[in-house]
Design a binder for these strands. Structure first.
Lengths: 174, 174
DNA sequence: CAAAACAATTTTAAGCTTGAAATTTATTCT
DNA sequence: AGAATAAATTTCAAGCTTAAAATTGTTTTG
């Protein structure tokens, strides 16, 4: 999905009227928007992955999993973690295995329902995560430094609309 | 990086003055923006992957590679493909192997420099890609249907600013 | 003209990711 | 209670991804 021109900032979208004159099935504007969105998130994401590896010898999935657990002091059920991270359940299994081995998280089988595994940050895991989280926040702040608070606000709002659009389209095709 | 609240649309950003009053090292606004951006692109991307698999028995990387080649009728050098797709060179090797096996692309060693491989869409590959591309454009249009042309224009512009911000931050830390 | 430097690509090792099938455990329904 | 159903998790097979090392081929330079 990559390949957007590197510095294309000209206005690509047209007003509704002009759009109506386009050939049927012409979705260029949406495609360009999607490519730009994807370019932005890929740029940020791969840089964050790189830095996590270099500076903490860790990975984004590990960081994300611990981030979920940080806000759940009493731990979280595996299925819930999987939903929140938007990844498949099988994925969580391996992550949890490794984070347990390395002592970052604990895992307990729920006594009342032995199908259910609850995981939580260990004190060590929490301490490690807090170090990483602070640095991570600085990285993001750095990468986003050229976006003013006002522009950031606009982006938040417009992305909220996009998110609703996508979620509602997904709900329809069920 | 997932885990943003599902329908959070309240204004998270504050004006510059309020921001100045926040504790030093408080990067919540940027973090929330990043999470929202990532949520949007993950939602779209995973749906596109799913549909490519279900309807065309294909994958996003394959589609992307062919999309690059479509605009290069005379073919493209592997290294160039790798750069445009923003993936590591080793990645391209495997993709090219499989797309060659399946007859979608051809590969030629440059006679003047035998290190260099040039790949191009075969007529079959081009025909297949065109079918996929048309459907793919419809999918995106569908997912983005709730975003008006005007809102899309705003998003394009704001994402352009973000992209410049990220690229310039990456250029600095070299 | 060799030797060193450089460039393009492939290989390797490790980890991530998915969907589907299998397992284990609980619940519901005769 | 026993059978079917459902739920939570794990296993499996296949493919993607990366960085680093290794290959292969070209160019530059002493």
């Amino acid at each position: 999905m990559m390949g957007e021109d590197k510095f294309d900032t000209s206005p690509e979208w047209v007003d509704g009227e002009t759009k109506a004159l386009e050939a049927p099935g012409d979705h260029r504007a949406e495609l360009r928007l999607w490519l730009r969105l994807l370019t932005c998130s890929t740029l940020v994401e791969s840089e964050i992955r790189r830095r996590l590896r270099e500076e903490f010898d860790s990975t984004l999935p590990r960081f994300d999993l611990m981030a979920q657990l940080e806000r759940a002091p009493d731990g979280m059920v595996l299925g819930e973690v999987s939903k929140r991270m938007m990844v498949s359940p099988g994925n969580i299994t391996v992550l949890v295995e490794r984070l347990t081995e390395s002592g970052h998280i604990s895992r307990t089988t729920l006594p009342t329902d032995r199908r259910v595994q609850v995981i939580a940050l260990t004190p060590f895991g929490r301490a490690e995560f807090e170090k990483m989280a602070a640095t991570h926040a600085d990285w993001i702040s750095d990468l986003f430094a050229g976006v003013s608070p006002k522009e950031g606000g606009v982006l938040m709002d417009e992305l909220a609309k996009l998110k609703r659009s996508v979620i509602s389209a997904l709900a329809k095709n069920t």
